[in-house]
């Protein structure tokens, strides 16, 4: 299987590769050069072009996109209702980009479309890294905090808990990211339970085999 990963930093990408391989139960080949976006607005802007490029110009089987939710609306079961679209939910928006972009694509490189998986790290990917180490950190805790206006932690606090500094260099980010996801890769049930927006990504990926 050949996959492309679109993320916000090389550290995120390193962690996502480990998690995706844990879900599919094996290694995958990477599309080179690696894809990168400059934060949320940039992901939404470049994604149609990236999908088009991967579909027509490469032999990639799939694309995995993972972004931070930041302070946006968190995806929930209501959003999965047929025809529902929440404009402030990044999962809804990215899925819509995939739908709209690939709607009229002809087959290319022997496949009708490339698979896609979308993950939203709530509120930031560092929350995934802390799963199983910090009981306070979960998607439900964040959503509850959004509801009451009293967030349980800030993104800066999550970063500090993971890296031990609020200004980690890239090497430290990659090292800590890979350490934490390797700790979790043998059993993803906790991560899927505590972070439904990761579980959605895992479901997308597991669905590829059924749909291939």
């Amino acid at each position: 299987m050949k996959l492309a990963v679109l993320s916000e930093s090389p550290a995120d990408e390193a962690a996502i590769v480990v998690l995706v391989e844990a879900v599919i139960g094996g290694h995958f080949k990477h599309v080179r050069p690696g894809l990168r976006a400059r934060g949320w607005p940039s992901v939404a802007q470049v994604l149609p072009s990236i999908i088009r490029h991967l579909h027509f110009n490469t032999d990639a089987d799939g694309l995995v996109v993972v972004v931070d939710s930041d302070d946006s609306v968190v995806h929930n079961a209501e959003h999965d209702a047929p025809g529902y679209f929440h404009p402030q939910c990044r999962m809804c928006r990215l899925r819509a980009v995939f739908r709209q972009t690939t709607k009229k694509f002809p087959a290319s490189h022997g496949r009708s479309r490339i698979f896609h998986g979308v993950g939203i790290a709530v509120p930031a990917v560092e929350a995934w890294y802390l799963c199983g180490c910090d009981e306070q950190v979960s998607e439900s805790a964040w959503v509850a905090g959004q509801g009451t206006g009293q967030l349980p932690y800030t993104r800066a606090e999550l970063k500090f808990r993971v890296y031990g500094t609020d200004r980690p260099n890239l090497q430290l980010e990659i090292q800590r990211a890979v350490e934490e996801v390797r700790r979790q890769r043998h059993d993803l049930r906790r991560l899927e339970n505590d972070f439904p927006s990761f579980a959605a990504l895992a479901r997308d990926i597991r669905g590829w085999n059924k749909n291939s």
Binding site: T165, D166, R167, P168, N169, L170, L172
Partner: peptide
């Protein structure tokens, strides 16, 4: 940026 932070915030490295 990381190299400049190495100067300004040496404890971070």
């Amino acid at each position: 940026r990381d190299l400049l932070y190495r100067l300004s915030y040496p404890a971070s490295t």
